[in-house]
């Protein structure tokens, strides 16, 4: 298949991109890495009147500043995967990024693009939700910030207004003695997740659980951030296998995933329990090894 005709505009700044969005109206799509949009164009699933290319805007280096890791929206997956700073300050993000697509899609794909695409089976939306990441969004009236969990509304749908563009992603740095795990089940290694779990576990000085954040992908129309209530059973307790299994079972019991060609809903729920237990255990084990950052 070849894409239906569209008009193309190249922009060199986010301001210019916003102006172009205002001018071109509803029929415009922003082109970042193009690893999701261009297949949709080629399959004619998407038929925009205008494609506004923001690649020439480029990306500044990833930086660490007062408690957050700042990633410009057009940071390519490969840059995240290879960044020493990300590996040190936010290893779960580097690890999850290595699971995105194939090496060619990681050479082009961007973190801002992945979040704006809002695929419920995407790795980065799931991890961003678990991390409590925020995006900065630019529109005609200036910038606003919102948590990724408020950005992601439903399947391929965000709360971005038609004239807004994501300019950066801000990931809060994790406390000392916090461990992480990202596990996913895929049919083939470059596929989207059938189910994926991102878990962060913080331990107190006595080795009890001080906090946990878990997001599950592939089980709803957007990554599901596990609410505090089922995770509260962990607090103050040592992260023993039986407890983690009980919590993971409770969490998976709250899910109602749908059936599709890749897996039945029941299988997905079962896998969420298995991966949830393993991810909590791995995160707790890593928290035990974690030196002060």
């Amino acid at each position: 298949m070849v894409a239906a005709p569209f008009r193309y505009r190249r922009t060199t700044s986010f301001e210019e991109a916003v102006a172009a969005l205002c001018e071109c109206g509803d029929g415009a799509k922003l082109l970042a890495g193009g690893q999701s949009l261009v297949p949709m164009l080629n399959l004619r699933v998407a038929r925009p009147d205008w494609v506004i290319d923001i690649n020439p805007v480029g990306a500044e280096p990833i930086e660490k500043l007062d408690g957050v890791l700042r990633l410009p929206a057009l940071t390519r997956h490969r840059a995240i995967e290879q960044s020493e700073l990300v590996r040190r300050c936010c290893p779960i993000l580097a690890a999850a990024t290595a699971h995105v697509g194939n090496p060619r899609s990681r050479a082009r794909g961007t973190i801002g693009g992945s979040l704006a695409h809002a695929d419920p089976s995407g790795e980065l939306p799931c991890v961003a939700v678990a991390l409590g990441a925020e995006v900065t969004v630019r529109g005609p009236d200036g910038d606003r910030r919102l948590p990724v969990r408020d950005l992601l509304v439903s399947f391929l749908t965000t709360s971005l207004r038609p004239d807004e563009v994501i300019t950066e992603v801000r990931v809060p740095l994790q406390p000392a003695r916090a461990g992480w795990s990202f596990l996913e089940l895929t049919r083939r290694s470059s596929d989207w997740m059938v189910v994926g779990v991102a878990a962060l576990v913080e331990l107190d000085a006595a080795g009890g659980v001080a906090g946990a954040s878990v997001a599950i992908g592939g089980v709803a129309d957007r990554p599901w951030l596990v609410p505090p209530e089922p995770l509260a059973d962990l607090l103050g307790e040592p992260p023993e296998e039986a407890l983690l299994a009980r919590v993971a079972d409770r969490v998976s019991g709250m899910l109602d995933p749908g059936d599709d060609v890749h897996a039945s809903g029941a299988y997905r729920r079962r896998m969420a329990a298995v991966l949830g237990r393993r991810a909590l255990a791995e995160a707790a084990a890593r928290a035990n090894q974690e030196p002060d950052r």
């Binding site: 690893q35 261009v38 060619r104 050479a107 082009r108």
Partner: peptide, 9 residues
Amino acid sequence: EAVSACLLL
């Protein structure tokens, strides 16, 4: 850098 020519305009 290796890229998919089908996904680049």
